[in-house]
Simulated scan of single mutants.
Amino acid sequence: MTPPASTSLSTHVLDAEAGRPRVGVPVRLERDGSVLAEGVTDDDGRLRFAEGVAPGVHRLVFEVDTPFYPEITIAFRVTGEQGHLHVPVLLSPFAFTTYRGS
Results as ranks from 00 to 15, higher is better:
Met1Thr: 07
Ser6Leu: 15
Ser6Tyr: 05
Ser6Asp: 04
Thr7Lys: 04
Ser8Met: 09
Ser8Trp: 03
Leu9Cys: 05
Leu9Gln: 08
Ser10Cys: 07
His12Arg: 11
His12Val: 04
His12Cys: 08
Val13Gly: 00
Leu14Glu: 07
Asp15Tyr: 08
Ala16Pro: 00
Ala16Tyr: 03
Ala16Gly: 01
Glu17Ser: 15
Glu17Cys: 06
Glu17Pro: 00
Ala18Gly: 05
Arg20Trp: 04
Arg20Thr: 06
Arg20Cys: 13
Pro21Trp: 04
Arg22Leu: 13
Val23Leu: 09
Val23Arg: 11
Gly24Thr: 08
Val25Lys: 02
Val25Ser: 02
Val25Pro: 04
Pro26Thr: 08
Val27His: 02
Arg28Val: 02
Leu29Arg: 01
Glu30Val: 02
Arg31Met: 09
Gly33Met: 07
Ser34Phe: 13
Ser34Met: 14
Val35His: 09
Leu36Pro: 01
Leu36Trp: 13
Ala37Cys: 10
Ala37Phe: 04
Glu38Cys: 05
Val40Cys: 09
Val40Trp: 11
Thr41Asn: 12
Thr41Ala: 10
Thr41Ser: 13
Thr41Met: 14
Asp42Lys: 10
Asp43Arg: 14
Gly45Val: 12
Arg48Asp: 11
Phe49Leu: 15
Phe49Ala: 09
Gly52Ile: 09
Val53Tyr: 02
Ala54Trp: 02
Ala54Phe: 06
His58Pro: 02
Val61Gln: 04
Val61Lys: 12
Glu63Arg: 08
Val64Met: 07
Asp65Tyr: 05
Asp65Glu: 15
Thr66Lys: 02
Phe68Lys: 10
Pro70Tyr: 07
Pro70Ala: 15
Glu71Arg: 15
Glu71Gly: 02
Ile72Cys: 06
Thr73Gly: 15
Thr73Met: 13
Arg77Gln: 12
Arg77Asp: 08
Thr79Ser: 10
Gln82Pro: 00
Gln82Ile: 01
Gly83Ala: 12
Gly83Leu: 08
His84Ala: 13
His86Met: 10
His86Lys: 03
Val87Cys: 05
Val89Gly: 03
Val89Thr: 05
Val89Ala: 05
Leu90Ser: 12
Leu91Met: 12
Leu91Arg: 00
Ser92Gln: 12
Ser92Cys: 07
Phe94Thr: 09
Phe94Asp: 05
Phe94Lys: 02
Thr97Ile: 04
Thr97Asp: 11
Thr97Trp: 06
Tyr99Gly: 08
Arg100Leu: 15
Arg100Ile: 09
Gly101Gln: 02
Gly101Leu: 12
Ser102Asp: 12
